[in-house]
């Protein structure tokens, strides 16, 4: 059992060990959909949604695997859970809220290959988080992903107007910006262990 308090887990996953800028999870969607603010925040919300739900399911299924002494099936189990969660959520949202579906619909399938989702499931298991800790961790980590995504999209919208050399456009530019953002986020690191 992990002793960390809920608030420290939240702060840690949101800022100190930000999934994108410090742990390097979910870089592909971070580079891919951070071009526009409007798409970035929608993607962020979808990811928070999917990660939280799949974290709960991963917690439950891990209990089952431990009970069956079949821990070696963990990776397969988690990836199947994530793929099905994404599909189920897609159907669920389509049925219940067509408005939300129109806003988030196209982002949902993309999330299956977002390694942050599997990352949350794996980390919460490796750190032996309790149920409450897992949920807080999932919300914090996914909110951290959304935060990084939104910050980057705002910067990139600004940069559209500036004169960037041809070779540096695209991925290289995003990576440079991410490097600077990551440096800024390093400033949060002391917050966790200050006591």
């Amino acid at each position: 059992m992990n002793q960390a308090s809920l608030s420290s887990i939240f702060l840690d996953s949101l800022l100190i060990n930000n999934f994108v800028l410090s742990v390097f999870l979910g870089i592909c969607p971070f580079i891919g959909v951070s071009g526009k603010f409007a798409t970035a925040w929608r993607m962020g919300v979808s990811v928070i949604f999917v990660i939280t739900v799949s974290s709960v399911l991963a917690y439950a299924s891990n209990l089952l695997l431990v009970f069956l002494h079949a821990e070696y099936l963990r990776i397969i189990m988690f990836i199947v859970i994530i793929a099905s969660t994404v599909q189920l959520l897609e159907m669920f949202i389509k049925k219940t809220s067509p408005v939300l579906f129109r806003a988030l619909g196209i982002y949902l399938p993309l999330i299956t290959t977002n390694c942050a989702v599997l990352g949350v499931a794996l980390f919460q298991t490796a750190r032996e988080y309790s149920f409450a800790q897992s949920v807080v961790f999932a919300v914090g980590a996914s909110a951290g992903f959304a935060l990084a995504l939104v910050i980057m999209s705002v910067i990139r919208e600004r940069l559209e107007l500036s004169d960037v050399p041809g070779v540096a456009r695209g991925t290289a530019l995003v990576l440079m910006l991410a490097g600077i953002l990551s440096m800024a986020f390093m400033g949060f690191a002391g917050m966790g262990g200050g006591a």
């Binding site: 069956l68 002494h69 079949a70 070696y72 099936l73 397969i76 189990m77 199947v80 793929a83 099905s84 599909q87």
Partner: peptide
Amino acid sequence: MSATTQSPKSPA
């Protein structure tokens, strides 16, 4: 203990 009981359902 059989691993195959855990075979995932196809999402498609």
